[in-house]
C-alpha cells in the first residue's frame, strides 16, 4: 500500500513546530496506531496520551486535520491522504509536550460544582426513584471526559479570559444531570448565571458536533439549563408561579431549615453497614493487601499508594491545583 505522511506537532511550552513522518499505510488503522508506529520507529520520544484504544477512556484527544477528535476513533481511511494528516494538541489547554496538554482547568471547574444534596429519605429511611425520573440524566453519564467539547468551545478557545467564569459544556451536562435529579435540593441556577457562564454560551453547537459519545449537549443540557435560569431570573410569570404554587425548588433558606435531613443515611450507607464487615474497611484503610480475602464485598487488593479506587476514582489528581 501507499505511504501516509503524518504531520505531528512537536514541542512544549518553549515552542514547537510540525514534524513530518512518512510511514507505510496499513489497512484498518486509526490515527493512534500510526502514532504508535512512529513512536516505535523514527520518534520514540513523541508524547501522547492514550489508554483504551476503544473510545471509552477519553485520553487520546487531539485535533486531527483541525477538528477535535479522539485519535483512537479516527480511521485513517476516512482521512484524505494526498496531503499530510495534521495532528495537533488540543488548542484550548496549555501544552505539556507534543500532543499532551494540561487539562486541569476542567478539574478546577469540577471542584466548584455543588454535589447532589438529596432531600429527606422516605419513612423507611430509603430513597426510591422511578426509571422515568432518572433516564434523562443517564445520557450525560456516557461522558468519557475527553474534553473535546471544552476544547472546541470558542468561549474559552478564542477568549481565554473567560476561563475563570465558564464551566464549559462538559460541566454543563453535569449541572443539568444534578439540576434535573429527582432527589436533589440544591439550586445551582444563580451559580450558573453569575459565575459558571451559562450566558456566555451562544449555543453554536460545536460541543455537540465533536462529542464522541454523541451526547446532545446543547439540546439536552445547555438549552434546558438556560431555560431553568430564565425560570429563576428572567421570567416574572415563573417567579409568580413559584410564589403561589411553591412547586419548584425551595430557596436556600427554606432548604437550610431541613438541614438534619441531609445528614440522614442514604440507602447505600444502610446496605453497606449490613453487608460489609467492619474489619474489611479498617484493613483497606490501612493499606493492607491481606484485606482482599476478608470477604466478598472487598475489591481487589491495592498496594498502598497504588492506583486503587482512591487514585483511579479521583478526578482531581495531583494536577488539579496546577
Amino acid at each position: 500500500m501507499a505511504d501516509v505522511t503524518m504531520r505531528v506537532w512537536r514541542g512544549d511550552s518553549a515552542g514547537g513546530d510540525f514534524a513530518d513522518y512518512t510511514m507505510p499505510a496499513v489497512e484498518g488503522e486509526v490515527v493512534l496506531d500510526v502514532l504508535h508506529r512512529i513512536q516505535a520507529g523514527p520518534a520514540p520520544d513523541l508524547a501522547c496520551r492514550w489508554n483504551c484504544k476503544a473510545g471509552k477512556c477519553g485520553s487520546c484527544s487531539a485535533e486531527i486535520n483541525g477538528m477535535p477528535r479522539l485519535m483512537c476513533m479516527t480511521r485513517m481511511d476516512e482521512l484524505p491522504t494526498e496531503e499530510p494528516v495534521v495532528v495537533a494538541p488540543m488548542k484550548t489547554f496549555p501544552i505539556v509536550r507534543d500532543l499532551v496538554t494540561d487539562v486541569s482547568f476542567n478539574y478546577v471547574m469540577a471542584r466548584q460544582l455543588p454535589p447532589l444534596k438529596p432531600k429527606a429519605p422516605e419513612a423507611d429511611g430509603t430513597y426510591r426513584m422511578q426509571q422515568v425520573d432518572v433516564e434523562r440524566g443517564q445520557e450525560f453519564r456516557k461522558c468519557i471526559e475527553c474534553f473535546l467539547c471544552q476544547d472546541v468551545c470558542h468561549v474559552i478557545r478564542d477568549h481565554e479570559e473567560n476561563k475563570p467564569n465558564y464551566a464549559g459544556p462538559r460541566l454543563f451536562i453535569r449541572y443539568m444531570e444534578l439540576e434535573s435529579h429527582p432527589l436533589d435540593t440544591n439550586d445551582r441556577r444563580e451559580l450558573l448565571r453569575q459565575r459558571m457562564g451559562i450566558g456566555l454560551c451562544n449555543i453554536t453547537k460545536c460541543c455537540t458536533e465533536v462529542c464522541p459519545e454523541h451526547i446532545k449537549i446543547t439540546d439536552n443540557a445547555i438549552i434546558p439549563l438556560k431555560e431553568r435560569v430564565v425560570d429563576g431570573s428572567y421570567d416574572p410569570i415563573a417567579w409568580l408561579g413559584r410564589k403561589i404554587m411553591r412547586r419548584t425548588k425551595r430557596s436556600a433558606a427554606e432548604v437550610a431549615q431541613d438541614a438534619p435531613a441531609f445528614t440522614a443515611p442514604t440507602s447505600e450507607d444502610r446496605l453497606e453497614r449490613q453487608t460489609v464487615p467492619v474489619a474489611v474497611g479498617a484493613a483497606v484503610g490501612a493499606g493492607n493487601p491481606a484485606a482482599a480475602s476478608a470477604g466478598p464485598g472487598a475489591g481487589p487488593s491495592e498496594p498502598a499508594g497504588g492506583t486503587g479506587p482512591t487514585a483511579a476514582g479521583d478526578p482531581f489528581g495531583t494536577d488539579a491545583g496546577a
Binding site: T101, R111, P164, A252, A256, A261, F262
Partner: peptide, 20 residues
C-alpha cells in the same frame, strides 16, 4: 445542608499558559 452560590468558593484558574 445546602450549597448555594455563596457556599461555592471560587478556585483560581491559571490562564495564559503556552498553547500547542
Amino acid at each position: 445542608g445546602v450549597s448555594t452560590i455563596d457556599d461555592v468558593k471560587p478556585i483560581p484558574v491559571t490562564i495564559g499558559g503556552v498553547r500547542g
